[in-house]
Design a protein around this nucleic acid. Sequence first.
RNA 1: GCGGAAUUGGUGAAGUGGUUAACACGCCGGAUUGUGGCUCCGGUAUGCGUGGGUUCGAUCCCCACAUUUCGCCCCA
Length: 418
Amino acid sequence: MITKPKGCYDVIDKESLKLKKINRYIDYYCEFYNYDFIRTPIFEARELFHRTVGDDTDIVTKETYDFQDRSNRELTLRPEGTAGVVRSFIENKMYGNNLPRKLYYNGTMYRYERPGNGRNREFTQFGVEILGSNDVAVDVEVISFAYRLFEELGFKDLNVHINNLGSKEDRESYKKALKEYLKPYINDLCEDCKKRYETNPLRILDCKVDKDSEILKKVPNILEYQSEESKKRFQKVLEYLEYLDVDYEVDSKLVRGLDYYDYTVFEIVSSEEVLGSASTIAAGGRYNDLVEKLGGPSTPCMGFACGIERIMLALDKIEIQEKRPLDCYILYVNEEEKIKAITLAQDLRCSGVSVDYDTTGRSLKSQFKEADRNHAQLLVLLNSEDLQKGLISVKDNLTKEEVKIDENEIIDYIVSNG
RNA sequence: GCGGAAUUGGUGAAGUGGUUAACACGCCGGAUUGUGGCUCCGGUAUGCGUGGGUUCGAUCCCCACAUUUCGCCCCA
């Protein structure tokens, strides 16, 4: 038997109903907030992700699905959504007018990881990006949008962890201070952190291994190494969040795994137990330099992404609506009736009635059961004797009342009673 | 990438080194010779994740691999 690749999964039955519901919510909500849907390729030039996500990040160094096509192009299955959106923004010259551009995407991403609870190799991310405005209102809109969306979906006890990474200059001066502070302790850090000390010292801040050590507890605070302008900007973000009643918690050690972030970064954490270590359901931040870095005009941006699978996990206990009931189920036994069933089904469907009938040669008894499984409202009972008189029986599956209708009026009858 | 656990039908699962692998649900058929959802009766794994090995003989023991799952790393 051929099985699905490791870390992939099929969405069927209840899960697929749940997924459809979430997707409908997302589409509705995004339209409500005036975001336009964007779809970009599932694979892109490998270089795109190296330049955006960062050469030293785990995502790029050990988690991408890389391949060459038949013309030896170096391609990569997208590990996240922002890079493709930014590439598209530049390539389609969206910066020309109508800024800011508000976009949302919802699609599969690929990372070669060890699968586990709420983590898969093929997974789905939904995210929004606002390109072309540095207004703090944008920072706040993105955060509150995410927060309200999850609330609306049924999450309780959401918490926003937020931090300010500041400008490039801010970070350079902080990195310097951080390295200076850590220098005497470098041998006490974990192996990964020793490497990070050179490649990306900020990542040491959220190291899980060293998190409880005294060294990290007394680490310089990034918020104190920023220009007055950066500090003011962050204060304003927090102030606006309060106006919008978003519960937040400043976490000066929050840094993100992707290199392109600056200024505001945030994560939304859920306390749902099923999530376990996958409690971060959404994360994002500002990336004011990315568009320029990829060859576009300087364009400040802000966005976030969330993992659909984690939402599905957490929504396990949330009520999901049943499959849509079938308007009508047609029952038949012999060949003559079967022909009538097939043609009647087509006519009814063309008239906007949802219909189904048995195609496995089941007994009449089983056909009744099948009709119930589909929650059929009306049962059409075909009977050769009646058919010869031009009559068809229609039974209301709720009241059990049965009437014989003239064959020529059957469509009208069902349309008006269905 | 590292460490632990699991893998029996459509589903939940019991079980044993040796004839036909419990039980329950579901599904199908019959009683009801064309009007069901209750009841009763019957059927429903030629196979116990895959490949090797040990053995007279393995679903059960050993090894490898795969997948799932828990923790770590990282992340959404």
